[in-house]
């Protein structure tokens, strides 16, 4: 089956939630990928919507680039709400 293209499968489990990556399937075309994904990943009503995406069209960050890529956000603690201490009297904000 490796001669068939690989598709990554994303399933929206409930209305209002994001599609989430669940795995992959091989298929001759996108339509078959959709049917295979339904059979493989939603046998117990796990989803209300499916995306199938050819794996070779995904651009991913390399894990060894982690430091370079995410470094700029590491030292900006003032971007988090918890950085700003408020007096107790102010209450919940």
């Amino acid at each position: 089956m490796s001669e068939w293209r690989l598709y990554e499968v994303f399933v929206r489990s409930k209305h209002g939630l994001n599609h989430k990556h669940v795995g992959s399937v091989h298929a001759a075309d996108a339509e078959m990928a959709m049917e295979n994904a339904r059979d493989l990943y939603t046998r117990r009503s796990e989803g209300v919507s499916i995306w199938v995406v050819p794996s070779d069209t995904i651009t991913a960050s390399a894990s060894d680039e982690k430091e370079v890529l995410f470094d700029p956000s590491e030292d900006k603690i003032y971007r988090h709400a918890s950085f700003y201490k408020l007096p107790d009297e102010v209450g919940h904000m």
């Binding site: 089956m1 490796s2 001669e3 795995g23």
Partner: peptide, 18 residues
């Protein structure tokens, strides 16, 4: 289905299913 989940995870290691 279980076989397929496993073959998929094996393929992420560069192995060929066939």
């Amino acid at each position: 289905g279980h076989g397929l989940y496993l073959y998929s995870s094996m393929e992420t290691l560069g192995a060929d299913r066939d």
